[in-house]
Every structure is written in structure tokens, then in C-alpha cells.
């Protein structure tokens, strides 16, 4: 690995949490070092997949929450009145 770039720098850069000067440094390292580039793009591919894993709560759960909010609303309205 590059002298000034650590693996943690790569993770921070991957998630857009580096300062501008660090970003330039990391990108330069990626452009110039095949090993770093491979590590970075491999992590980027895994990161992109995670966002495709979302699932839904059941409709009955959501309805129960909304019913609870509605049923308890008069008490709240009374309290703020």
C-alpha cells in the first residue's frame, strides 16, 4: 500500500468522507497503483450492492402504528389544548 494512503483512507473516500486534499491524494493513488485500484473498485462494487437489499415492513405493522396514532390522538390534542 502507498506510504501515505491507508486502507481506511480508501473506505472514507468510498463514502465521500474525505477532505478535498485527501480526496485528491487518494484518487491519485488509485490512478497510479493497480493494487490500490483493485482494492478500491472491489469495495465499491460491494458497497453498491448493499443499497439494493431494502425490504418492506408488513402492511399490518404499518396499519397498527397508524391506528395507534389515531386512537391516541384525542388524548394528545386534549393535552396541548
Amino acid at each position: 500500500m502507498n506510504e501515505t494512503i491507508t486502507l481506511n483512507h480508501l473506505v472514507l473516500y468510498l463514502y465521500n468522507e474525505t477532505e478535498l486534499t485527501e480526496s485528491v491524494m487518494v484518487q491519485k493513488a488509485i490512478d497510479q497503483n493497480e493494487e490500490i485500484a483493485e482494492e478500491f473498485y472491489s469495495m465499491a462494487a460491494a458497497r453498491d450492492l448493499i443499497d439494493h437489499s431494502l425490504m418492506h415492513a408488513s402492511k399490518s405493522s404499518i396499519n397498527s402504528i397508524l391506528s395507534y396514532a389515531t386512537l391516541t390522538a384525542p388524548l394528545h390534542k386534549k393535552a396541548i389544548a
Binding site: 486502507l7 481506511n8 473506505v11 472514507l12 472491489s42 469495495m43 460491494a46 458497497r47 450492492l49
Partner: peptide, 19 residues
């Protein structure tokens, strides 16, 4: 923060490995 970053890096590496 280094531990958090390390955990994320291992998570990403492990995901790639599993794939």
C-alpha cells in the same frame, strides 16, 4: 473511528468473498 472503518472494510471484503 479506525475500528468503524476497519469493520466496514471487512464487511465489504467479506461480501465480495461470499459473492
Amino acid at each position: 473511528i479506525n475500528t468503524s472503518l476497519g469493520r466496514m472494510r471487512y464487511a465489504l471484503i467479506n461480501l465480495r468473498k461470499l459473492i
